[in-house]
């Protein structure tokens, strides 16, 4: 048994005793504080420094703000790489997310001050608008991350995605044999329900949770109430099927709401970086 330095144990103990808080509150709001300081300092600078002839991205102060902004934007966009590159070292993706959110928000102030409130139909304003688009979708993302997970968890009821599908398959198997004694028309309803893709409905259905063409709901509606024993059994199974489908659909809906903003956030970021490049090159070209 080799002797082990105490500090590894202490490190582990610290981790085991770690804060159990969200990315927003990480290290007692560290990144919110840093972002606020950044905003206040740049804001006060904007107000106090006499920029000639007027506040503008082209003054020395404007260049300073622009540089801070571009560095932040590039660094913030690297979160996507950090997330996927599981390298060794004492980094925490939670800290990165925390910094990403709060520093990203501070760009509203820094970017706006950089424009000197000069807006026009040009590539410079395009970059600014794209930045705001990225930030606004990001704000939605923060809201989603802060509120939806609890709903996702309650809906799951300890089932995994695979188990939800398995449960549905099990109901379907029973439904298939239970429907054998039914007449042609009723059998067709059950067959239609069984044949329909579980994931039918497309993006709209997924986001809104509205599935007007749901064959299970239709079959359930068309089955007579108080039928014979076989019919009653089919109705029970169809009810179970629609409940199971509803759980799967709620799961898909919350997952979709958690992810949908990324479909704007990420492409807009790419566009922003391209626009930013055009903005920077053109500014220096026409210096």
């Amino acid at each position: 048994m080799a002797s082990k330095p105490q500090n590894k144990f202490q490190q582990d103990e610290k981790r085991r005793d770690a804060d159990h808080v969200s990315f927003l509150k990480h290290k007692n709001w560290r990144w919110l504080k840093i972002a606020l300081v950044l905003c206040i300092v740049t804001g006060v600078g904007y107000a106090l420094i006499d920029q000639e002839p007027r506040p503008n991205g082209g003054s020395w102060y404007g260049y300073t703000l622009g540089t801070i902004g571009v560095v932040l934007i590039i660094w913030l966009s690297l979160l996507g790489v950090r997330k996927r590159n599981i390298s060794t070292g004492h980094w925490s993706l939670k800290a990165w997310t925390s910094a990403h959110v709060w520093l990203g928000l501070s760009l509203i102030v820094i970017g706006t001050l950089h424009t000197g409130f000069q807006i026009g139909w040009n590539v410079h304003t395009l970059a600014y608008v794209l930045m705001l688009l990225v930030i606004i979708t990001g704000i939605y993302g923060v809201w989603a991350y802060a509120t939806l997970p609890a709903e996702l968890s309650s809906n799951r009821k300890e089932l995994t995605r695979g188990e939800m599908i398995d449960a549905l398959t099990a109901i379907d198997r029973q439904l298939d044999s239970a429907a054998q004694p039914l007449d042609r028309a009723q059998s067709d309803l059950v067959i239609a329900a069984l044949d329909q893709d579980v994931f039918y409905g497309g993006a709209f259905g997924r986001l809104t949770g509205s599935y007007p063409g749901c064959a299970t709901a239709k079959a359930l509606k068309s089955m007579p109430a108080g039928g014979d024993e076989a019919e009653e059994r089919v109705v029970t199974l169809l009810t179970r099927r629609s409940e199971q489908l509803a759980q799967i659909r709620r799961h898909l809906r919350i997952r979709a709401l958690l992810e949908v903003w990324l479909f704007i956030h990420i492409p807009a970021t790419i566009a922003l970086i391209a626009a930013l490049l055009a903005h920077v090159v053109s500014v220096f070209y026409y210096w």
Binding site: Q11, D12, E13, R15, R16, D17, A18, D19, H20, V21, S22, F23, H26, K83, I86, T88, G89, H90, W91, S92, L93, K94, W96, T97, Y145, P149
Partner: peptide, 25 residues
């Protein structure tokens, strides 16, 4: 042997994943 400790905790973007010991938690 991996510097930085458990990857599951380091890679959680929201702070949901924690590793604890019962006497601490």
């Amino acid at each position: 042997g991996i510097k930085g400790g458990p990857a599951c905790v380091r890679a959680c973007p929201t702070g949901a994943a924690i590793r604890v010991s019962p006497d601490k938690f």
